[in-house]
Amino acid sequence: MTIALNGPLLLVGAGKMGGALLEGWLARGLDPRSVFIQDPALPEGIGELVAAHGIVAGAAPRLPQPPAVIVLAVKPALAGEVLSVIAPSVGAGTVVLSIAAGRTLESLSEPLPETCAVVRAMPNTPASVGEGITVCVANAHVSEPQRQACETLLAAVGEVVWVDEEALMDAVTAVSGSGPAYVFHLVESLEQAGIEAGLPAELAARLARGTVAGAGALLKHSEQDATTLRTNVTSPNGTTAAALEVLMKEDALKRLLARAVAQAAKRSRELSS
């Protein structure tokens, strides 16, 4: 899918997530002449990419016309200050797409023109390798073409899902935003368990990493759900069944994850209030 917008795109912040988005856009054919980057100090790799494509970047790049989309990819603590600075560049047809974690539609809209279209998005770190999933919610001023433009831009780094209720974003953050860390901890734990079972550390690490990565790839490409895939690999009275008897006893793992997600959602609400 080639990306085409009806005006310039202003990327504010070209750090890890902003840089991943930029790479995805360029890979999908977005005209680099339509991209402008507001960032006073580009990371080394992104600086080289920007230079190679002749993209205009700097602390305050001058755009030929109001941007079609402003992508806000700065740290949440800086979002309000940055939005106040860029507010004068917002045009009647501009949509502000924020990936600043925890910033509500209300807080994002406050420094902007009263009827500004704003989309709040929650991506996750697998976006850096094009395997992310992003959940979005829009305010009442976002038109269908603006919604489609935001979805097209975010789809460059993975799957995109929309919700109608902003209140769901705290749970979204707890499940998909923080979720990769849970999976990485699973790998750490599986690796340690392998060592305790007698495997050399290097082999345990390789097996744990490869198993989780492979299972994730199988889950992504299979039409079967996770329950069916688990059942398929579990022979009656076999080794997997013996392990699952421990993990699933009294819903131990389910209950632990439920507590973890609830705690993360609670913290998300605290940070966004």
Rank of each mutant, 00 (worst) to 15 (best):
14 A>M: 00
165 E>H: 13
231 T>H: 15
129 V>Q: 11
207 L>Y: 01
138 A>E: 07
175 V>H: 03
145 P>K: 11
55 I>T: 08
151 E>M: 12
88 P>T: 08
205 A>V: 05
257 L>R: 06
198 G>E: 06
135 V>N: 02
195 I>A: 12
117 A>T: 02
220 K>D: 11
208 A>P: 02
230 R>C: 03
3 I>K: 09
71 V>N: 05
150 C>I: 08
125 T>M: 14
219 L>M: 14
214 G>R: 06
193 A>V: 13
93 G>K: 13
120 R>E: 00
176 S>Y: 02
189 S>N: 05
177 G>E: 00
129 V>C: 06
137 V>P: 01
8 P>Q: 10
147 R>C: 10
28 R>D: 10
10 L>P: 00
97 L>Y: 07
23 E>S: 11
188 E>P: 01
20 A>F: 07
203 L>E: 13
91 G>V: 02
68 A>W: 05
29 G>N: 11
64 P>Q: 04
267 R>T: 06
191 E>V: 03
152 T>A: 15
93 G>V: 11
191 E>Q: 14
95 V>T: 00
167 A>D: 12
92 A>L: 11
1 M>T: 14
8 P>K: 07
76 P>Q: 11
190 L>K: 03
168 L>R: 09
255 R>N: 14
202 E>Q: 13
112 L>I: 08
154 L>T: 11
250 E>T: 09
178 S>M: 04
124 N>I: 08
233 V>Y: 06
33 R>F: 01
266 K>I: 09
60 A>Q: 14
58 G>T: 07
229 L>D: 06
214 G>V: 06
46 I>P: 02
58 G>H: 04
255 R>V: 09
220 K>Y: 05
99 I>H: 04
25 W>L: 09
49 L>E: 11
2 T>I: 13
120 R>P: 06
237 N>Q: 15
149 A>R: 08
79 A>K: 01
78 L>P: 07
171 A>V: 12
156 A>R: 03
177 G>Y: 01
124 N>C: 00
232 N>Q: 15
215 A>N: 10
18 G>R: 01
13 G>Y: 02
214 G>A: 07
240 T>W: 11
202 E>R: 12
1 M>F: 13
105 L>V: 10
144 E>D: 15
1 M>Y: 13
78 L>G: 10
209 R>G: 11
212 V>T: 04
253 L>F: 12
40 P>N: 01
203 L>Q: 15
272 S>E: 10
64 P>V: 00
35 V>M: 00
224 Q>P: 05
90 V>F: 09
69 V>K: 01
253 L>S: 09
16 K>L: 03
198 G>F: 06
210 G>F: 05
175 V>T: 05
21 L>C: 05
